[in-house]
């Protein structure tokens, strides 16, 4: 999808903050000098095209009581599909990437408690047979920025 200037301005506004007001799209429309229906139409198109992944609340998983970690595994190349199918089958696994390192599979996982999290990791160890899984929970967060500058 090609974004025009209005799309880019709109994205910039709604990325940073959507007004918590009864008519959020009208407020955005007013600051852009266009109609509310046009804002809704453009947002719809960007959602359809996948430019916008989601619109609404982005939660801080820790603050709502979830525990998370980043895990790294050493998986034999011929077992990647099999192991990733098992890892990805857990709903708490939100991201999983292959990376260029002997620890080649990296996934993030969230669970309702530390106990639950450890149970899932044990299950993954047992059902994949992969012994080298390290868990690297964030000990300190220096930055987490999800908004992006658009030129």
């Amino acid at each position: 999808m090609n974004l025009d200037d209005v799309d880019k301005k709109l994205l910039k506004l709604i990325q940073a903050d959507l007004p918590l007001a009864p008519e959020p799209f009208r407020e955005i429309a007013e600051s852009l000098g266009i109609e509310e229906a046009e804002v809704i139409g453009r947002v719809f198109n960007m959602l359809e095209a996948g430019v916008i992944r989601r619109l609404g609340a982005i939660f801080d998983s820790r603050k709502i009581g979830y525990t998370g970690t980043l895990c790294a595994l050493k998986v034999a190349v011929d077992r990647i599909d099999e192991v990733s199918a098992i890892v990805n089958s857990f709903p708490g696994v939100t991201h999983n990437y292959l990376r260029e390192h002997t620890f080649n599979m990296w996934f993030t996982i969230l669970a309702e408690s530390k106990t639950k999290l450890d149970e899932i990791l044990d299950t993954i160890r047992q059902s994949t047979g992969v012994e080298e899984i390290i868990s690297l929970p964030a000990e300190k967060v220096f930055k987490i920025r999800v908004s992006f500058e658009l030129d």
């Binding site: 999808m1 974004l3 994205l11 709604i14 990325q15 940073a16 903050d17 959507l18 918590l20 947002v43 960007m46 095209a49 996948g50 430019v51 916008i52 992944r53 989601r54 619109l55 609404g56 609340a57 982005i58 939660f59 801080d60 603050k63 709502i64 987490i144 999800v146 908004s147 992006f148 658009l150």
Partner: peptide, 15 residues
């Protein structure tokens, strides 16, 4: 702080 941000989550690839 339970809601970190209220807005659009964007796919960086498309930008």
């Amino acid at each position: 702080g339970m809601i970190r941000r209220f807005g659009a989550a964007v796919r960086h690839h498309d930008l």
